[in-house]
């Protein structure tokens, strides 16, 4: 491909991704247990009155926060996954490689399985107080693990050490969670398991007031660090010879990626698959490893894929809903395999 051909291809691909985000966002507001016509959705969004009162409530209080949550979560996980894959130069790295999910699940497990009053409220149905408690517990657990990893990331010479410690922390917290489950009563276990399925549906407007700015700031910070991420493509040793302060860069990447993945996990539970798959899709579709293109592409693709998965999980026209975590991988994994197989043979990193 010539230089201008490649540039045109990138613009076209990014435009298509932007269009797919608009389409999936529109569909997420239209489709659900009841189908609300697109013009009615538009009327509600601009502040007009829909033909039926219920539609206003459904669109403004249920579907809009849900769609925004899905879009932000997808964008956040896609970009965090991209950062991790570049930092570790490993195609299998994802936002949770550093043990963020493990930390969050430990926090939630301590609350729901071992906790006293709050856990009772949680088990008796997802009251507001319990939901806030879970969000806080997940956030704190994730933050604890990330702090540990950060202290390390600033000290050790080799990034692989950080990766191994992240994995070990994951195993350790996993075994503590197992022990908590072993001794917990079944009712509480089911509440914990439900958290593990992940959901975009419980995020409220109030929560979005925290969720949105954190994600947007971390996404902007990542976009601004595209130059460093590109240098890291050459590996840390080369990056350092070009003037990259490796430890500072590493800490910066870990902080932004953790803020993205940790916030998503706190509000929506552990959402798997998107973080590992979206960067691969972005690379394959754009045919480049340039982060100045990959970061915006991962935002657009991540948001679109998350919205699409949420639409499918809603099983439109039906009262049945499915767990989002099952859907993302079920429809996503085959797509990623096909795209990767069709792309160049060495596109995996």
């Amino acid at each position: 491909m010539t230089a201008t051909g490649a540039a045109q291809h990138r613009v076209a691909a990014l435009t298509a991704m932007g269009a797919s985000l608009i389409v999936t966002f529109g569909l997420a507001l239209t489709l659900g247990s009841v189908l609300i016509p697109l013009d009615q959705v538009a009327t509600v969004l601009v502040g007009g009155e829909a033909d039926r009162d219920a539609w206003e409530t459904i669109v403004l209080d249920i579907r809009l926060p849900r769609a925004i949550t899905a879009a932000l979560a997808g964008a956040a996980l896609g970009v965090a996954g991209l950062q991790m894959q570049t930092l570790f130069r490993n195609p299998l790295a994802d936002p949770f490689t550093l043990g963020i999910t493990s930390g969050a699940s430990l926090g939630v497990a301590l609350l729901t399985l071992a906790g006293a009053g709050a856990a009772g409220a949680f088990a008796s149905g997802l009251g507001l107080g319990a939901a806030v408690g879970v969000t806080a517990a997940a956030g704190l657990g994730a933050a604890a693990v990330v702090s540990l990893v950060l202290v390390l990331a600033g000290r050790v010479r080799n990034t692989v050490t950080v990766l191994v410690v992240g994995l070990m922390v994951g195993f350790t917290t996993g075994s503590i969670v197992s022990l908590l489950i072993w001794f917990a009563d079944p009712e509480r276990i089911s509440a914990f398991v439900r958290w593990g399925f992940g959901t975009f549906r419980t995020t409220t407007w109030d929560e979005l007031r925290i969720f949105t700015p954190v994600v947007v700031v971390a996404l902007v910070a990542t976009a601004l660090s595209a130059k460093v991420l590109n240098a890291l493509l050459l590996g840390e040793r080369y990056a350092e010879t070009m003037g990259v302060r490796i430890r500072r860069a590493r800490v910066g990447v870990v902080i932004t990626a953790s803020a993205l993945a940790g916030t998503v996990t706190a509000f929506a539970g552990p959402i798997g698959f998107l973080g590992i798959a979206v960067p691969h899709l972005a690379r394959a579709l754009l045919d480049t490893n340039d982060h100045r293109v990959l970061v915006p592409a991962s935002v657009l693709l991540g948001a679109s894929v998350a919205l699409l998965a949420e639409i499918v999980a809603q099983v439109p026209g039906n009262d049945v809903t499915l767990p989002i975590n099952a859907i993302t991988a079920l429809i996503g994994a085959p797509v990623v395999v096909v795209v990767l197989l069709r792309a160049s043979p060495r596109s995996f990193a």
């Binding site: 130069r89 493509l233 050459l234 590996g235 480049t288 490893n289 060495r346 596109s347 990193a349």
Partner: peptide, 8 residues
């Protein structure tokens, strides 16, 4: 040689 993947 660092494995930089797809890059012109």
């Amino acid at each position: 040689y660092p494995d930089v993947g797809m890059l012109r």
